[in-house]
């Protein structure tokens, strides 16, 4: 310890590390806690093989399919914020319209989500339209 105390730089670094640890610890616990939550709630566990998407009913999606594949999460999140906070409601593009073509959440949304291991928690409160 003697040598440590005579080195101001070491001292500073060590002090910073201790604080970083203390500040990070709760965050880590939070992360692990919510992680446990996610696995607990995911309805159908991934069973292997590439995702098998059910064919959609309608003619075409409200946006080009490849764009949707890449951006639907941001699109939905942005719309969510607009709807909640600005009251924007576009009925031709509402979630009810999604369900008219993609009738089963299990055979559509969950397929990829399980495959890539993400668990959005939208439908813990909202119900997927029937």
């Amino acid at each position: 310890m003697r040598s440590l105390q005579s080195h101001p730089l070491k001292f500073t670094v060590l002090l910073a590390l201790v604080w970083a640890f203390v500040l990070v610890l709760p965050t880590m616990v939070v992360a692990s806690g919510s992680g446990a939550d996610v696995t607990q709630h995911s309805k159908s566990a991934y069973t292997g093989g590439p995702p098998q998407l059910e064919n959609a009913k309608g003619e075409a999606c409200i946006r080009p399919s490849d764009w949707m594949r890449r951006n639907h999460m941001d699109f939905l999140k942005h719309r969510r914020a607009q709807t909640v906070r600005e009251g924007l409601r576009i009925r031709s593009e509402s979630l009810i319209k999604c369900a008219e073509c993609h009738q089963s959440r299990e055979k559509f949304c969950d397929q990829c989500h399980n495959y890539v291991g993400v668990a959005p928690d939208c439908f813990e409160c909202h119900s997927y339209p029937k």
């Binding site: 600005e86 009251g87 924007l88 409601r89 576009i90 009925r91 031709s92």
Partner: peptide, 8 residues
């Protein structure tokens, strides 16, 4: 029926 797009 409400219009397709409404906003607060």
């Amino acid at each position: 029926p409400p219009p397709d797009k409404t906003e607060a």
